[in-house]
Design a protein around this nucleic acid. Structure first.
Lengths: 182, 182
DNA sequence: CTATGCCTTCGAGCGCGCTCGAACGCAAAA
DNA sequence: TTTTGCGTTCGAGCGCGCTCGAAGGCATAG
């Protein structure tokens, strides 16, 4: 029940399709059947990041990974889950610094849960803000595309004056009166 | 007509309010009445970037700015409009490199309009992709918050097992069976 | 006449998040 | 036995986008 519901919401959130959403959905689903342990190459492949980066995260103190008899890293399901989390947070723009803080809270024990929630809520708000910013930018870019040749320069005369009437609303270079300075 | 329409769309795009949207709207509106010329401090204030950054953009070849008799920068309306554009594009994540390319197209003349549109369309798609990514991340974070103490660690027992039933859907650390390795 | 304040140029430095190369080890394949 | 291939550690380097400091110029205020 919770699963279907969540997947549905995630899919809705994705909106129109694309290669990235497919990949993302796969990642959502894949977590259900994780192998017992994984090698660094497998994890790197799963998360679509380089082994270098995985080692870097370990060096950065974000995660501890066990070694086998030969010294190679062995990622158990817990480590992989944490890395999935870390990767998602990085992808959504949380800086390493904050991630280190969060992880330190996790490792400090259950009494830090409220503080962890604070971190998450703040990050949630950051994401929302970013989405709003991007949506605004998107609108501007779409408008610029729609009204044709964005005239950031002395090329308006080459376009004719098809966009000539009253759109001082969006700041991206409305048509100039005659030839502008630059 | 176009003005109202666009502002409406921009506002809708902003969705729920916040300090950032107010600021953004101000910027949208302000372009209507730009002073004839501005100093670097005024432009910096308008765009909410530092004079240092403005000089940097100039050094980077994104814009040329005239000087007055004394050697100080004089930003005319055209320069300011270009900087508004540049700032928005930066804010929406377009790298300097691409911006330089775009600007070089603009300066090359009207025959580059199709190529410019290519750049804009590609950037539009990048923004859309990014919004989808962020929306997915947002869903995940909201889920994590909703199901309480994100359990990236051995603290689940401290929380009770309220989140114990079947949500393998979202990968961020579902409750473990007993004490996990890490 | 100084002091303040904002401007100039130039080049160096920084924080972030990787990214890479060097030098090496073990193990299965040829 | 040598080669291939994947792993290890360590430290340096890089690309990006600023950000800052130094050294100085001009103008207005006190």
């Amino acid at each position: 029940m919770a699963t279907d519901d969540l997947m549905t919401r995630a899919l809705e959130a994705l909106g129109d399709d694309g290669p990235l959403s497919v990949e993302a959905i796969r990642r959502l689903a894949d977590l259900a059947d994780l192998p017992e342990t994984m090698t660094i190459a497998e994890v790197a492949d799963l998360l679509d990041i380089s082994p270098h980066t995985l080692r870097y995260y370990e060096r950065a103190g974000l995660i501890e990974v066990a070694r086998d008899g030969i010294g190679h890293r062995v990622y158990d399901a817990g480590a992989v889950r944490r890395l999935v989390f870390l990767t998602r947070m990085r992808l959504s723009g949380m800086p390493m610094r904050d991630l280190r803080h969060y992880i330190s809270l996790v490792d400090a024990g259950g009494h830090t849960v409220p503080e962890r929630l604070d971190v998450l809520v703040e990050h949630r708000d950051t994401i929302r803000r970013r989405i709003r910013e991007l949506t605004l930018s998107l609108t501007a870019v779409e408008y610029k595309i729609a009204t044709y040749g964005g005239a950031t320069g002395p090329d308006v005369q080459a376009l004719g004056t098809t966009t000539g009437t009253g759109h001082t609303a969006l700041p991206d270079e409305p048509p100039r009166r005659a030839l502008p300075a630059e």
